[in-house]
Design a protein around this nucleic acid. Structure first.
Length: 590
RNA sequence: CGGGGCGUAGCUCAGCCUGGCAGAGCGCUGCGUUUGGGACGCAGAGGCCCGCGGUUCGAAUCCGCGCGCCCCGACCA
């Protein structure tokens, strides 16, 4: 590609909507353009990077036994109603109507469609196992797009769906996808760590997320400093700090004027927050709509309620929201002084595991200005217990007793064991070897393509610009021509080299513009191709071409006759350096 | 959906408080000089000042109502 003809230009200033360094570099480099909130166009450079990422994904999916399909974005709403996800996704699903007023949805994901496809075309156990995958646009009406390309409303996703006859088969497919994912992220230069995750609205159980650690991440991950346990806080198990053992003491009222928060209460009474019980009121409303159920969640004062865990403890299928003041009054609760003792019978009380071994806590007395001392679960009040509190840095690891640490991160990919969620919803069966019916068990495996793009830039840039990982760079080589308009020999040299490099199979961008050297070098650094070659009068006269590696700054003058071979070798070395092993090393030292 | 910020040239922004010709830098076009890390001169092009309504002789500027974008939270496979 000649840069004089390339559509799109670099900007000198960072556009003000740039939310992260990576987002800013992509905007400045002429890679992407925002059309509206959460919707981006890709210019030629950005599109090439996207396609390179897709190529890596295709290669790894095909190697792992996947077969690519192409599925509709326009989908009948009935399909979503049948799986129950029309309600589960709610406003996140884009709804529309055709001219005959038929209800349609824009595909937010494709489990329903692919399950139907499988049903129509799989006939017997001989069609198992099957792994179908697609790399396509998906649409989600996100409540708040953010983070540049991180949370958007229209995006490219690779989704794979596996169908197996039994658990062993599913485990094999899952393991194959897991390994493919490690290879994909490594080859794309994005260090990720696999962590245990909540399955959310997609259903199923047993899922892992591939997380790219970054301060601007949306998720909080805890990981053990001793063993390899790592999990999203939506899911993370942990050992609660132990409470001091003590015999239950008689309950007594204590006046606590103005102490409406745990912090205020602990200060007022001169005790540790862990010696209190914290009450959080929520309303659990069915996804389908309708009247909600009041929920009274109790955790020890040193912990926080985790809404995802709470939702799962309630059996799922509900939306949780904080209770309105009017509802608090309606159910006879006293904000700041609420008590699980004598909670109204129409309020669902649920206690965190931390309450079980923590005697003599201070809890609300259910009247303004008063608390109760020495409240004990099981003696003074009763409620089912569950893990409904968030793990935090400093807590104990549930696996090995080590200490948990935490970091922010972005989900790059997610692998799920769906099992029978969709085959059951659509009553999918194939003929078994014994003549009976077999219901396939499913897995699904997603990767956000633009998230990889964004994370690859975040993980690979410096002050001057992007340093693309070689396997996903829009071009392999950036050729800079200096003063070619004033030197016929240098110009001929550059043109010849441009042709030779392309003939050798390299993707080359050739800066043939009539610009000053500084402009060209700065643009080359900004848009970030992995290798740079400079052809100029003085180099041509000396029979050399300047060679430089973008990421390291290392370089040398190569004899003209060796240039193509040396560049090929250097490029191969960069691509091979993007291995699973090197990625693991980088992730560990994040 | 709650709280906050912003909206003027392709980009970054000034002008608004205190109403009176639509501005700067960068970028862009042409000509000339220059040429190894974002040169210089000359001449130009480029605007629904987010929209609608109101106040006023007169509105980018004041008032009202919308819309859009961004941030924090709620939400989020």
């Amino acid at each position: 590609m000649r840069m004089s003809a390339l559509f799109g230009h670099t900007l000198r200033d960072f556009p003000k909507e740039a939310e992260t360094p990576a987002h800013g570099l992509l905007l400045r480099g002429g890679y992407i353009d925002q059309l509206m909130s959460g919707v981006y166009s890709f210019l030629p450079l950005g599109n090439r990077a996207r396609l390179k990422i897709e190529r890596v994904i295709r290669e790894e999916m095909d190697n792992a036994g996947g077969q690519e399909v192409y599925l509709p974005a326009l989908q009948p709403i009935e399909l979503w109603e049948q799986s129950g996800r029309e309600a589960a996704l709610g406003d996140t699903l884009f709804h529309l109507r055709d001219r005959k007023e038929r209800g349609l949805a824009l595909g937010a994901t494709h489990e329903e469609v692919v399950t139907r496809l499988f049903q129509d075309h799989a006939q017997s156990y001989r069609d198992l196992p099957a792994i179908l995958y697609q790399i396509q646009r998906k649409f989600r009406d996100e409540a708040r797009p953010r983070g540049g390309l991180v949370r958007v409303r229209e995006f490219t996703m690779k989704d794979a769906y596996s169908f197996d006859a039994d658990d062993d088969g599913l485990n094999r497919s899952y393991a194959a996808m897991f390994e493919a994912y490690r290879r994909i992220f490594a080859r794309c230069g994005v260090p990720t760590v696999a962590v245990e995750a909540d399955s959310g609205a997609i259903g199923g159980k047993g899922s892992q997320e591939f997380i790219f650690f970054t301060e601007s991440g949306e998720d909080t991950i805890v990981y053990c400093d001793t063993c390899d346990y790592a999990a999203n806080t939506e899911k993370a198990e942990f050992v609660r700090p132990p409470a001091a053992a003590a015999d239950p003491q008689p309950t007594e009222e204590v006046e606590t004027p103005g102490a409406t928060t745990i912090e205020g209460l602990a200060t007022f009474l001169g005790i540790d927050p862990a010696q209190t019980a914290k009450a959080v009121f929520m309303m659990a409303t069915p996804k389908e709509g309708g009247r909600g159920t009041p929920v009274f969640a109790v955790v020890r004062g040193d912990l926080e309620v985790n809404e995802v865990k709470l939702m799962n403890a309630l059996g799922g299928g509900v939306d949780l929201r904080p209770m309105l003041d009017s509802e608090v009054a309606e159910y006879g609760l006293v904000a700041g002084y609420a008590s699980p003792i004598g909670a109204p019978s129409n309020v669902r009380v649920i206690a965190d595991l931390s309450l079980e071994g923590s005697p003599n806590l201070v809890a609300g007395a259910n009247k303004p200005g008063w608390h109760l001392r020495n409240v004990n679960l099981g003696r003074d009040w009763h409620a089912p217990t569950a893990d409904i509190a968030s793990a935090k840095a400093g807590h104990g690891c549930a696996r090995c007793g080590g200490t948990l640490r935490s970091s922010r991160g972005i989900e790059m990919g997610h692998v799920f064991r769906l099992q029978y969620v969709y085959t059951k919803a659509f009553n999918v069966n194939v003929l078994g070897a014994d003549g009976g019916q077999v219901m396939p068990t499913m897995g699904c495996y997603g990767i956000g393509v633009e998230r990889i793009l964004s994370a690859a830039v975040e993980a690979n840039h410096d002050e001057a610009g992007i340093c693309w990982p070689a396997s996903i760079a829009p071009y392999d080589v950036h050729m800079v021509g200096i003063g070619l308009d004033r030197d016929e020999a240098a110009k001929a040299d550059a043109e010849a080299l441009y042709a030779e490099l392309r003939a050798a199979g390299l993707d080359v961008i050739f800066d043939d513009r009539d610009e000053r050297p500084g402009v060209k070098f700065n643009d080359a650094d900004l848009i970030g191709m992995p290798l740079r070659l400079t052809v100029s009068s003085r180099n041509t006269a000396a029979g050399v071409v300047e060679f430089k590696v973008r990421a390291t700054g290392e370089g040398e003058n190569l004899p003209r006759a060796e240039v193509v071979q040396r560049v090929l070798e250097a490029h191969r070395a960069l691509v091979e350096g993007l291995s699973v092993e090197s990625a693991a090393l980088r992730a560990r030292t994040h």
